[in-house]
Amino acid sequence: MIDRRIYVLGAAQVSVQEPLSSSWLDHPVPLEGGYLRARDPQWRDYLSALQLRRMGPILRRAMVTSQAALDGAVPEAIMTGTGLGCIEHTEQFLTDLCTGGEEMLSPAGFMQSTHNTVGSLVAIQTRNHGYNCTYSQGSLSFESALLDAFVQLRLGKIHSALVGGHDETTPKTYQVVAHTCLSEGTVPVTEGSAALYLSDSPDREPLCALTGMGIVRGADPAEFLPHLEKAARPDVIFAGRCGRRDVDAWYNAVLEAYPGVPVLDYKQLFGEFFSVSALGIYAAATCLSQGKLPVAPACGTEVAELRKILFINHYEGAFASYAVFEKPCGD
């Protein structure tokens, strides 16, 4: 495999922070409560009346974050990660089926309920015939999409890609997630979208370079750490501690191998949902681009020079992910 450079040329988010903005760096919105919906932009500024009528929250957010990250560029491929896809539509069709029976069903909810609705909608709206794929792998959904792009960019099969992580959390979904995944003292259950535009050439000023990543067996920190050897000496580590004891214990054990390295707990900024790692990675790219870390409550640590960020993610199950972002060399 030729070691092609991979640059992040664009990144955008809609989440519980100010939408389509990096104001969370200086003025983070504090997160309170157990469940928070995203702060949406003024949709009419971005989408037509027809689009608004047809699209639920996840599709609207996917559209605007994709457009903002691309900023007019046309990607050769679109990779999408989502834990539950258009769950609002899925719940609607399932509720109709369970309450009204099998006779009088409208296809509207079903048509948008497949996970690939999000990624294919972006392609339909932008008339993009390129490679298009969607992953649904719980808390590693976004990294699965990113790995697909990473591998194809490295191989030179593609030269640019739009990679998105999108999830919507309806009240019903929250009830289910809260039942199994939330315990006292955790960050709130939230929702959101983030999109990155990756390219193997710095056609415009890159935010940073993606220099390595992987999805590996890593429930045991001792199993995970050897994979990070190439990520030696990060200036800061972006971690997914969320206040759940079992989750945080894994991070604490991994972080022991990095004494003195500041840690940014990105879920303190963005909350918890399946594809929140997309927000963490968006934040890493944004911090490198702006050369600074957010103020408290999330980190508050001064770093002399911000050149390299190690991102790590493990929520449950046997697998964990890592990604390394660096200031591009030679600048």
Partner: peptide
């Protein structure tokens, strides 16, 4: 996917494609 895989053993990586 993980349940399917668990019948066979421990894979080095698992992911799920969902393009209908």
């Amino acid at each position: 996917s993980e349940l399917t895989a668990s019948f066979a053993g421990s894979f080095g990586m698992i992911t799920t494609v969902s393009t209908a």
